[in-house]
């Protein structure tokens, strides 16, 4: 008998928490029989937005640059920031105050989206994914 850790059983059990993660399989994979028709998928395009396309953009470059200035190489990748880092951050936010214009505002918006997308992957129990929320909002508008 197979034992699957509880947090991973959601998709298989049909729980709504796993729906977002398997959405593209339900919509893009599975058996197709040409004698049958398929219902229109109009309205689902919102799911196709690619968070990663922002990686090669000026906004991302600026955001990465800021993040690197804040990074404390001594502290290790997932440890709390140490004192030197905090000092760096204060310096950093000073610099940010001076240079903050339309562009860095946009960078922060992207940063926020990026952060949210990442946090969805970490939080437990998982909040409903942003994209699925958009889809749901769309439904409710109908």
């Amino acid at each position: 008998m197979t034992v699957v850790p509880a947090q991973q059983a959601g998709g298989g059990g049909g729980g709504s928490s796993g729906l977002y993660d398997v959405l593209e399989l339900i919509l893009d994979r599975g058996l197709v029989i040409d004698a049958f028709i398929r219902v229109s998928l109009v309205g689902i395009e919102i799911l196709k937005i690619d968070v990663r396309v922002v990686v090669a953009s000026v906004d991302t470059y600026l955001r990465f640059a800021e993040a690197c200035n804040r990074l404390d190489l001594e502290a290790g990748p997932r440890k709390a920031p140490g004192l030197p880092d905090l000092v760096g951050e204060i310096t950093e936010s000073g610099a940010r105050g001076k240079s903050k214009g339309a562009l860095s505002g946009a960078a922060e918006t992207v940063s926020e989206a990026f952060r949210q997308a990442r946090e969805e992957g970490q939080a437990e129990p998982r909040p409903r994914a942003r994209k699925a929320t958009s889809a749901r909002r769309k439904e409710e508008q109908e």
Binding site: A56, Y61, L62, F64, A65, E66, C68, E92, A95, S99
Partner: peptide, 24 residues
């Protein structure tokens, strides 16, 4: 690049762009 920017108070726009592009 990051160290140079840090010492320049975060670096100017070009410097930040260059660092960010390299990192990306």
């Amino acid at each position: 690049l990051a160290e140079a920017n840090r010492q320049a108070g975060g670096g100017n726009y070009e410097q930040r762009l260059q660092l960010g592009e390299t990192v990306a």
